[in-house]
Design a protein around this nucleic acid. Structure first.
Length: 992
RNA sequence: GGCCGAGUGGCGGAAUGGCAGACGCAGUGGACUCAAAAUCCACCGAUCGCAAGAUCAUGUGGGUUCGACUCCCUCCUCGGCCACCA
């Protein structure tokens, strides 16, 4: 008898399968032969390839999907089971910075090594469909995807704060910031405002949330996504600023404008209705305006003082600047669509705006003449350039705010953005509108656009200091680390719409600009954070909710459960009640319950608002090793999409990787300079690359048609294979990857590129494989198991079986170096059976039918560990097997241990592959038990058990039971008051 | 702090309302062997008992039930995710 030599056998069959194309994906499943479609798409989360090579965690999920794929093929399904490489990203780029080796080169090495390692497991991947996200043939379509989103308005650019390391001159991902410092050099990380591309995933928040219900995914993963999306319903309420300073507004129209044109009549009457004095002069020379002449006119005809706010629309903004430059002091200036470049689009002709701008301004002086400045930019503007807002903001140290005008250039009959900017009510979001009467102050985030406007002169220094300090803090520092709340009073007040009281407006960084409106109403009596803040700064605390009374129906439950009384506040001086209750100190609402009045109070004081925690997806990376963003900037035409025929936008190779503050590809002349696709003049490319999560948000589509160079994938192929039937991977991707892939799928459905909503019908997680010490494997701990060594010693089949046998797939479990011996022994035992050449028998046994049923059901439910136990038990209990039974046994085992079973199958004289055998069927009738074990219990305790034919009647079971000696002992002198009979299982006597 | 998951022999785990510890590892004893390896057989939660059997035992304490590892409540421990989300 030959010895079981896994090294020889495994290599031999891997070669043979490759040669025979055993795992090639069938083309256009079902359609060709005209039979009904019976496809399955079984997918692993493709690995992020790195120099570290394969980890023992990778093959866990891969083995599970391999077993499942083989099982399905044997059942007659057409199966798509592909693999590929996630290859763009930081680790490879950092290695390039250190070593000088281009990422293209190291990625090729990584890919080769990963392929070799994965192949050594004998997985049934279709290697013809291998993809690599860093291949131009792939990222061409990643760029195409970006353009699809851009064309449909789902990709946009805006200013965003990012983590910035001033020493390395680079942006850092959140994960690269450790304790507020740069992971690489230890420098304190700052927040920097940069112009970044975003995908509008928030448009899909409601659908991403609602559609989770229909997915066969692990509940914890769904819960994490729900949590991440973070829907809450509440009220948006406006608080008027109690600003006695502002008495009048002066509205200055632009070129071609008059006081009767555009929004001016509407704005004037709206402001007058609110009791303000409004001046909207018709300025001279409106067709060819002169800033000095118009400024003279305004100075002469309008009242301008510290109680005045100027609104300058378009060229009117230039006039406003000129007025301030002359030393005229006002309370505030609002610029709307003000041009700052030397030319602007006058009708269809581009011409010099005005000498005004060429003359220049004394911005330092201008800044001193006003308490605040607001710069409003219309994102749909076709007259002035969007970057003009940036220029002005830079000169005036102010933030620009982007709006969409109702008509481009804010030329609508009504422009609410302008009215809002002038009157400046503070909008807050609250889920507890029932506590409105208890709102004793407001708090703004330090970045809130109204901060400058509200802050009074005497508080200005404190506020500026505080805002600067909080800018230095990272998001992490602002939230987790510093529990102590800090803040500063602005000097300004607002009106509580319910009580009509004047309440102070504070700034504090416990309020986040990124959620809700960036402002809150503080109800210290009923919110822990507000309570803490109010105590520290001695702000008023007013109770408006009475906690519910404890119902004393608990007296008959004794003792009362712990904690039932503990939740009640005993003393509002030292604690606050955050639950619902009965309203007090709330006018007409007194005596009503929180939940009852919320809707009514929302209607009276504000409006219903649904708020999500989900933010738009920031995809810009100032990095080299990613897919370049396919956008071109032209001075005249603005942002231009790279035409699809010009894709891919290739990564340049004439770059060095040292971090200097811009994306490395910005310094490549060959890359950066380009002709505008619209007008042909010199323009420049976007020099950022895309987040690698964009690459992986669509790779499962590419697998259906990986070599297509005409489109991302053929529509027919997508329709054939998608959605993915089973997707297996780690829970660490619960939120980002899975959410992004769902978002892209929904967006593409809306673009009519596909016709389904959800990409992954069924998801299963694999758990972590820990080191032998029960800790997470890591180089520094020295507890890393190398899969190559394990395969060399024990073989791929033993490795696969061991990882499946360790425990439930989704559990984290430690690697036990001696544990694999058991699986190796099992395979040796299989080998001995298989090389024994047993006799044919008259038919297959009942036992093997039971095994067929057990294995089939265990694979179906991903219970591979108990399946393998069943194989072992079967061999333990059946010392000699007939040829029929043994062959069935091998076929059942083939998906788990493909090499040894193939070898033994051929040993039996078969010429075809065991992996192409049909999955055995079992006879349900045959495996019904003829005899069953009946358990006899007395008061629920087992006192005897015996075998009886299945279906024995209660009376017969009882007769047999009470004749048992041990049972008799327990029944002696007792009276049976009740019998519980479970047919074929047990009889239980309740005695007295 | 919030949400979620888990706690069973020396170890990995099995059993989702009906004989707790399947299967494997480790361990003990035996067979084979000059010996060892491999293999095979037996034992393998604790306590009592010659045995039959009994009692205790699935993190803690309670509850529901004829019967609870399993369902409900309290607490403890560990793990994961989120974290001042108004």
């Amino acid at each position: 008898m030959e010895l079981y030599d896994h090294q020889k056998i495994e290599k031999k069959w891997q070669k043979a399968w490759e040669k025979d194309g055993l795992y090639k994906t069938p083309d256009l499943p079902g359609r060709q032969a005209g039979k009904p479609k019976k496809k399955k798409y079984i997918l692993d989360m493709f690995p992020y390839i790195s120099g570290a090579g394969l980890h023992v965690g990778h093959p866990e999920g891969y083995t599970a999907t391999d077993i499942y794929s083989r099982f399905l093929r044997m059942q007659g399904y057409d199966v798509l089971h592909p693999i590929g490489w996630d290859a763009f990203g930081l680790p490879t780029e950092n290695f390039a910075i250190k070593s000088g080796i281009p990422p293209q080169e190291s990625v090729k090495k990584y890919a080769d090594r990963f392929e070799e390692q994965i192949r050594s497991f004998g997985f049934s991947y279709d290697w013809d469909r291998l993809i690599n996200t860093s291949d131009p043939k792939y990222y061409r379509w990643t760029q195409w995807l970006f353009l699809q989103l851009y064309k449909h308005g789902l990709a946009y650019k805006k200013e965003a704060y990012v983590n910035w390391c001033p020493k390395d001159q680079t942006v850092l991902a959140n994960e690269q910031v450790v304790d507020g410092c740069c992971e690489r050099c230890g420098t304190k990380v700052e927040q920097k405002l940069l112009n970044q591309w975003f995908f509008k995933i928030t448009d899909y928040a409601d659908r991403l949330l609602a559609d989770l219900d229909g997915l066969d995914w692990p509940e914890p993963i769904k819960a994490m996504q729900r949590n991440w999306i973070g829907k809450s319903e509440g009220a948006e309420i406006e608080f008027e600023i109690s600003d006695s300073k502002v008495k009048r507004f002066v509205i200055l129209h632009g070129k071609h404008g008059t006081s009767k044109l555009n929004f001016i009549p509407w704005l004037k009457s709206s402001l007058e209705k609110q009791g303000y004095e409004v001046q909207a002069p018709d300025m001279p020379g409106t067709e060819e305006p002169n800033d000095l002449e118009q400024a003279d006119f305004v100075q002469k005809n309008c009242k301008l003082d510290k109680n005045t706010v100027i609104l300058g629309h378009s060229f009117g903004g230039i006039v406003a600047l000129r007025l301030l430059e002359r030393g005229i002091g006002v309370h505030g200036v609002v610029f709307a669509a003000t041009p700052m470049s030397s030319t602007f689009l006058d009708g269809k002709v581009r011409r010099t705006v005005a000498e005004a701008i060429n003359r220049g301004f004394d911005f330092e002086k201008i800044k001193r003449q006003t308490d605040y400045v607001k710069i409003l930019v219309d994102s749909t503007d076709t007259v002035v350039r969007l970057q003009d807002g940036d220029i002005l903001a830079d000169k005036l140290n102010s933030l620009k705010q982007l709006f969409a005008g109702t008509v481009p250039h804010f030329c609508g009959k009504e422009e609410p953005a302008l009215l809002e900017a002038l009157t400046s009510k503070i909008k807050v979001f609250t889920t507890r509108v029932d506590t409105l009467f208890g709102a004793t102050y407001l708090v703004l985030a330090p970045e809130h656009p109204l901060v400058d406007q509200i802050t009074t002169a005497d508080q200005k220094n404190y506020v500026i200091n505080y805002v600067i300090k909080s800018k230095e803090k990272t998001e992490l520092q602002r939230t987790a680390l510093e529990k102590e709340k800090t803040g500063v009073f602005t000097g300004g007040f607002a009106i509580n719409p319910a009580t009509k009281e004047k309440i102070p407006v504070w700034i504090a960084d416990y309020v986040l600009m990124g959620y809700g409106t960036g402002a809150i109403m503080a109800v210290p009596a009923h919110d822990e954070r507000d309570f803490e803040f109010a105590k520290k700064y001695k702000l008023p605390i007013r109770q408006v909710i009475e906690p519910p009374k404890v119902i004393n129906a608990l007296t008959d439950i004794s003792p009362a459960p712990d904690g039932i009384f503990g939740v009640l506040p005993t003393d509002l001086e030292s604690d606050c009640w955050i639950g619902d209750g009965t309203l007090i100190n709330s006018g007409d609402y007194d005596g009503h319950k929180s939940e009852k009045v919320r809707m009514q109070m929302t209607k009276e004081f504000g409006q219903l608002k649904i708020q999500y925690k989900l933010r738009d997806w920031l995809v810009s990376r100032q990095r080299y090793w990613g897919a370049p963003i396919p956008i071109i900037y032209c001075d005249d035409c603005g942002k231009q999409a790279v035409p699809e025929k010009d894709l891919p936008v290739l990564l340049p190779t004439d770059v060095d990787f040292l971090p200097t503050g811009e994306s490395p590809i910005a310094r490549s002349k060959s890359f950066h300079q380009v002709k505008c696709p619209n007008c042909g003049q010199a323009a420049r490319r976007d020099s950022d690359t895309m987040d690698t999560f964009v690459d992986s948000a669509w790779y499962f589509y590419r697998f259906t048609d990986p070599h297509n160079d005409k489109q991302w994938a053929d529509k027919k192929q997508i329709k054939q294979w998608l959605p993915v039937d089973v997707y297996v991977g780690g829970a660490e991707h619960a939120v980002l990857h899975l959410l992004y892939a769902r978002f892209i799928t929904k967006a593409f459905r809306d673009f009519k590129l596909i016709d389904f909503e959800e990409p992954f019908s069924k998801l299963r997680n694999q758990g972590l494989i820990l080191g032998p010490d029960g800790e997470k494997m890591s180089k520094s701990r020295g507890n890393v198991i190398n899969p190559d060594e394990v395969i060399a010693e024990w073989g791929a089949d033993a490795f696969r079986l061991y990882e499946m046998f360790m425990g439930p797939l989704e559990d984290s479990k430690p690697w036990n170096t001696t544990g694999i011996v058991g699986l190796s022994r099992f395979l040796e035992k299989v080998w001995r059976h298989g090389t024994r050449h047993p006799e044919l028998d008259s038919g297959s046994s009942i036992k093997i039918h039971k095994l067929i049923k057990k294995i089939g059901s265990d694979i179906e439910f991903f219970k591979f560990n108990t399946g393998i136990a069943a194989f072992m038990q079967f061999l333990n209990e059946n010392k000699s097997l007939s040829k029929q039974d043994l062959e069935v046994f091998l076929v059942l085992l083939a998906p788990f241990a493909p090499h040894i079973t193939e070898e033994l199958w051929h040993n039996f004289g078969h010429k075809d592959s065991i992996h192409q055998q049909p999955w055995p069927k079992f006879d349900e009738k045959l495996i019904e038990d003829k005899n069953v074990t009946i358990v006899v219990q007395i008061l629920g305790r087992v006192r005897a058990s015996f075998e009886l034919p299945a279906g024995t009647s209660q009376q017969a079971v009882k007769d047999k039971a009470i004749s048992n000696a041990n049972v008799k002992k327990y029944l002696d002198g007792k009276q049976i008051i009740k019998e519980i009979f479970v047919p074929d299982k047990l009889i239980n006597f309740v005695v007295k």
